[in-house]
């Protein structure tokens, strides 16, 4: 049970920042609440009585998104379902519909924010690797004197470990900005114990841009989650594939450049096998999203099992 002395619902960023900086020790910010409410249950943190909960979901400055100069800026209140329902976001962030459709379920996605997912900093978070792959930065605000001071941090520097970020006391994350990936094909791979409502054991995101003749890889973005304390970008694989001809051979050769990526302490062998398959699949699914299918769908499972 999550109880509190005060449940606050500020409507402006200044108001939210002022309440947050003045909140007693132990207070929490709450966006969708889909991480915090289950956290305050038996077997996890247990029943919680917090001094204050500051619910930022009605702060207008944190709503919506915009696209400026090739960067997409997603407000902190943006929920995962919008990656499926917004035409424009689908166009600019082609990996996100795939990520979203595997994320929780339709109902939770109406509540769960991308920013909550990032700040929660679970090694299994599905949203964070995608933002990483798109050169994401987080925008942070705090009160400095009477006015709002802002800073921004690259996602790779923001997340420091399980549950750990470089967010300071009194700060609120206001937005996430990332490259517009319009023209890329996107993919998201995820494995857990079941399909709906499942936390990832491993997840991977892939983005592929083809040369105009569709014969070579013009750009590739790959990131993975669930295999260590923080998500990782697969720089070596990305660099290898750039300029390579589009073929299974290129992809299989690229996989070999990945090296040992597993940092998790558990299920290491399983995870490294999944990584291999997921690199292949993420690239191939992103290719298919660009209109180039290397494998007929019915062969996919079989090929990735036996290679």
């Amino acid at each position: 049970m999550l109880n509190c002395d005060q449940y606050l619902m500020p409507e402006t960023l200044e108001e939210a920042l002022a309440q947050w900086v003045g909140a007693p020790e132990g207070s929490r910010l709450l966006a969708g609440g889909t991480d915090i409410l289950p956290w305050a249950r038996e077997g996890r943190a247990g029943h919680m009585h917090l001094p204050a909960i500051i619910d930022i979901s009605r702060v207008k400055e944190l709503h919506g998104y915009d696209v400026v100069d090739g960067r997409v800026r997603l407000g902190a209140n943006l929920v995962f379902q919008r990656f499926l329902t917004s035409e424009s976001l689908r166009h600019h962030l082609p990996c996100m519909p795939h990520c979203a459709v595997w994320f929780a379920d339709d109902q939770i996605r109406e509540q769960a924010t991308l920013v909550g997912n990032i700040v929660n900093a679970s090694p299994a978070a599905d949203g964070t690797p995608a933002i990483f792959a798109m050169n994401g930065t987080v925008e942070i605000a705090r009160l400095d004197g009477g006015s709002v001071a802002r800073r921004s941090v690259a996602i790779g520097d923001f997340i420091t470990g399980p549950g750990g970020t470089t967010l300071e006391a009194g700060e609120i994350l206001t937005a996430v900005a990332c490259d517009s990936m319009a023209g890329y094909g996107g993919a998201f791979e995820k494995v857990g114990q079941r399909r709906s409502l499942v936390i990832s054991v491993v997840c991977a995101v892939g983005l592929v841009k083809l040369s105009p003749d569709k014969k070579t890889f013009a750009d590739v973005r790959l990131a993975m989650g669930g295999i260590g304390p923080v998500p990782i970008r697969l720089d070596a694989v990305e660099a290898f594939l750039k300029g390579q001809p589009v073929s299974r051979k290129s992809i299989l050769a690229a996989v070999k450049t990945a090296g040992d990526l597993v940092r998790s302490r558990t299920r290491r062998e399983y995870r490294s096998e999944v990584i291999r398959g997921f690199i292949e699949r993420a690239v191939e699914d992103a290719l298919a999203d660009c209109g180039v299918a290397l494998l007929p769908p019915e062969m996919k499972e079989a090929v990735h099992v036996v290679t």
């Binding site: 499926l84 290397l294 007929p296």
Partner: peptide, 28 residues
């Protein structure tokens, strides 16, 4: 893989693109 066999579950029915994909038989 016969009709009537249980298929593996895949998500994304609503976003599966309908545009034609050209299948290359390049299985290395």
């Amino acid at each position: 893989g016969r009709a009537g066999n249980r298929e593996p579950c895949t998500l994304g029915a609503r976003i599966r693109t309908s545009h034609d994909v050209d299948t290359k038989e390049d299985i290395a």
